[in-house]
Design a protein around this nucleic acid. Sequence first.
DNA 1: CAAGAAATTGAAAATGGTTTTCATAATCTA
DNA 2: TAGATTATGAAAACCATTTTCAATTTCTTG
Lengths: 142, 142
Amino acid sequence: MDRVKIFSDYIVQKGLKTTNQRMVILKTFLSSRSHYSTEELYLKLRKKHPKIGYATVHRTLKLLAESGVAIEQHFGDRHARFEPVRANRHHDHLVCVECGLIIEFEEPNIRELQLQVAAEHHFKINNHRHELYGLCSRCAAK
Amino acid sequence: MDRVKIFSDYIVQKGLKTTNQRMVILKTFLSSRSHYSTEELYLKLRKKHPKIGYATVHRTLKLLAESGVAIEQHFGDRHARFEPVRANRHHDHLVCVECGLIIEFEEPNIRELQLQVAAEHHFKINNHRHELYGLCSRCAAK
DNA sequence: CAAGAAATTGAAAATGGTTTTCATAATCTA
DNA sequence: TAGATTATGAAAACCATTTTCAATTTCTTG
Ligand SMILES: [Mn+2]
Ligand SMILES: [Mn+2]
Ligand SMILES: [Zn+2]
Ligand SMILES: [Zn+2]
């Protein structure tokens, strides 16, 4: 289903209101590269929408995550990052500690093993975090 | 090698000083259950060493991580946690989002796949984070 | 369409874990 | 043992995030 619709439906179902800010933030968020921090998205939005507030951007990103349209990620540094949930299955990340490059990867066998581990401990997985930190090829070459 | 010695050597090699606080903190850290936040360790230490400062505990934990005696972990909530590095290979974590229980697990096949993914992207792994969040068996039963 | 109730916004302040500052104390070299 | 250097503890600073609050916008009702 269209992600704008998912969000709209969530808004309605929760008794919240559809505002211009929310729609602008959602569209900008969806139409750009992933892994935005609140500040990055705020700065980008401000170019076309100078009156939008930082708090609104942050609140909306949280709301996007709540509605299932976005996922909140935490890569080492201190700020949260958000990325659109995509139709294809979950993925994990390689994070370059030198230049900040983020590479996504998908490895079904890892998913398999995670489920196996969880089963062994009678543990019910809601979500997971799996990041490999190090140097991308470019930075390693330096 | 003894972890106290590893730390002492690191201290000397860096031109730092061996202090009572550092030794007390190190020993308390090593002799207790893992995954301490700064505050938890600070509160525990204060019982026997009321004059020790929060900043010193925090600085020492950072130093322990630097020296390779401890690893800094970040599980969802906002504070860093530290655990002693153990002789046996690295391990990952199941984190119960309900009661905070942390279960450790080790899965060589996952390690294998991580290396394979890194190789595919010509990526040099320094460290990684791998946590499965959800409900432990006790909490799931409720 | 207009009015009122309820939610939202933006700016500023508050929060809270972490980090820094700085005067005093402890360590260590010579 | 003195002098140089690092460490400590209390308090302040930091800074991403969250909350507050008066003004604004949305949306339901009549
Ligand atoms: Mn991603
Ligand atoms: Mn552990
Ligand atoms: Zn890089
Ligand atoms: Zn539990």
